[in-house]
């Protein structure tokens, strides 16, 4: 499988946030989207997820434009936004039931992605009583319900403890190894290390970047 972003443009009123983003990736690749605050990382991911429309451009998956083919996009793309896309008053199980059929949920809890993310351990906990890490793992668990081959994550490790970051990183590595394509908007050094390609969003354009673990150099480039 191959994805291609072709000349994605987006303006908010007169401000041109994305001036033509283009990149491509093959199966089993993780792409790190970097950039300062307000550079358009979240906007780019939400466009690819279909949350908001772009002014111009295409998001091709094996030649089919996911921005137009909403049914295919619903199946092919999983999206974890920055906030908590969960129902706070309900348990993890209730939240999962929105995305999983009963059988699928049982299967994944027994020996699947939900087990891998450790969601089975807090299945009956109410979301409002969960830690940030538990919420994030549950959010990822919800996003990958239909086993989408493309996963978009907007700063998945923000404000999480080390153990949780490690848990999520392990899962993302497995996801990548399973042939999935990850698009990760991040500032986190550990997550950057997971990536195979890096792009810096600056002045509405995407610049290819070679991350070598030198955070100081990266900061200067942003």
């Amino acid at each position: 499988m191959r994805i291609e972003l072709e000349n994605i443009k987006k303006s908010f009123r007169k401000k041109e946030v994305l001036k033509g983003i283009s990149l491509s990736a093959e199966s089993g690749t993780c792409i790190g989207i970097l950039g300062g605050n307000g550079s358009g990382k979240s906007t780019l991911l939400s466009i690819l997820a279909g949350v908001q429309p772009c002014d111009e451009g295409r998001f091709l998956c094996d030649g089919r434009d996911l921005l137009r083919d909403t049914a295919l996009r619903g199946r092919a793309v999983g999206y974890v936004p920055q906030g908590t896309p969960l129902m706070e008053e309900l348990t993890a199980k209730d939240n999962l039931s929105l995305w999983y059929s009963k059988d699928a949920m049982e299967r994944e809890l027994e020996n699947g992605v939900l087990r891998m993310l450790g969601v089975d351990r807090f299945l009956k906990t109410t979301v409002s009583k969960m830690s940030g890490g538990m919420k994030k793992r549950l959010s990822i668990g919800c996003a990958v319900a239909k086993r989408p081959p493309i996963l978009l994550l907007d700063e998945p490790s923000a404000a999480l403890d080390l153990e949780c970051k490690e848990n999520i990183a392990q899962y993302l590595t497995l996801y990548k190894q399973g042939g999935g394509i990850l698009l990760l908007a991040t500032h986190d050094a550990a997550e950057l290390a997971l990536c195979d390609q890096w792009y810096i969003l600056k002045d509405g354009l995407s610049l290819s970047y070679q991350y070598d673990g030198n955070v100081e150099r990266l900061v200067k480039s942003l």
């Binding site: 939400s46 949350v51 909403t70 996009r73 999206y79 936004p81």
Partner: peptide
């Protein structure tokens, strides 16, 4: 507005 994230994910799924 606390439901915005959920709304976004739901919209992404059609």
């Amino acid at each position: 507005r606390g439901e915005d994230s959920l709304g976004r994910v739901l919209a992404a799924k059609g």
